[in-house]
Design a protein around this nucleic acid. Structure first.
Lengths: 200, 200
DNA sequence: CGTACTTTTGAATCGCATCAAATCTGGTGG
DNA sequence: CCACCAGATTTGATGCGATTCAAAAGTACG
């Protein structure tokens, strides 16, 4: 089990945690199912998505390390599907034990609150990004907010990134190419990096 | 002080809460300020927004009853501005007292977690909405998800709604008119309502 | 080495942003 | 009560950027 998880969870909970490997394409859980476990992604990648009636997938969360659907702690059903996009590992934690620990261990509850706060901020930033109209504006915003020093590794390909930015992959490819030609962006394999503009 | 707040907060906190009236246009707090208080909107309307460098405002949260920027509990600075869009009342709660109560009162912490969970879900729905491309798709999604039985009161006008949907007001006006003509939407003053389509 | 998927480029079309302007509205002060 | 003003609402014309549809080239993987 990852150290991050050990530090977050009290023993009463982590002792009940069950790690397992995931396969690409596997569904960890489905919308409308009753949550019995909380999942922590410890390797690979899992996306939380909703599927419209025409089958268009909307990516709501992309997790490489952290909880999927933390917000379903008290929910009657999941409100999204969780799909494995890259094989790896998840840790399943019984929700009952988690709830019990949260009501009994205030320090743990506070750590949990911090985690939720971070997720709320991340989602607000994502809303801000999706409020932008141009493709390149969204891309640059992503690099500015999610990247480290304007650098961001794109592990699952630009096509997958396109659905995350809610644009077509064609538009994204063209936008990347255009930004590169303008000298505002650089590509090193899977890494996109903003080119620092010299301030006057 | 509203009953909802009384039920949520323990006495140690609610005794320190300070209600006050708000004026239209007033800024409750600004980005980059250090959070000293947590604000509960008890009347009127407050929006949480970020302003880009060209002054384009992005609405991240619109609150008529509830907390603004709950996620800044442990933050060093606010990450958004809070602006009063309709005069009313807010209750200011000292953050120190709040934090203390959360670490000592597990039941309160659990109620707080539920509130954050609800906000996370709301934000995911908002991301889903902004992922839609068409204006009318976004509008219909709003009515489906935020409305009660497809009915939603628009108190602050369609123009303000337009910025929330991240479209121009012209496009929204036209979209509303078009949907009305198609018989998919009805307007009764400030209320927008989906027209129920007869299932076969 | 074939198959499935991503990446890339091209062309046509469409919806929305943009700019402009007219009308309507609620609220203010004379 | 009316004139007036600021803001919201509405309609029109134009252009651009993204979607859509199509197809070719590159790449990973069994």
């Amino acid at each position: 089990m990852p150290a991050v998880l050990q530090e977050l969870l009290p023993n009463s909970v982590s002792s009940k945690a069950a790690p397992r490997v995931t396969r690409k394409g596997e569904r960890i859980f489905l919308r409308r199912q009753r949550p019995a476990q909380m999942f922590f992604v410890a390797g690979g990648e899992v996306v939380l998505e909703r599927t419209g009636r025409q089958g268009e997938a909307v990516v709501l969360q992309r997790v490489r390390r952290g909880f999927v659907a933390e917000a379903s702690l008290q929910s009657v059903t999941y409100h999204c599907d969780a799909v494995v996009t890259e094989p790896g590992r998840v840790v399943a934690i019984p929700i009952g034990a988690l709830r019990r620990a949260l009501t009994q261990d205030a320090a743990f509850a506070m750590r949990w609150i911090d985690m939720l706060n971070a997720e709320v901020r991340r989602l607000r930033t994502q809303s801000e990004r999706l409020s932008k109209k141009g493709v390149s504006e969204r891309l640059l915003h992503l690099l500015e907010t999610e990247g480290e020093g304007g650098r961001l590794a794109i592990d699952s390909g630009l096509k997958s990134l396109a659905t995350e930015l809610a644009v077509t992959h064609e538009a994204l490819y063209r936008s990347v190419a255009a930004l590169e030609k303008e000298g505002r962006l650089r590509r090193d394999g899977h890494v996109l990096a903003l080119v620092q503009r010299q301030s006057v």
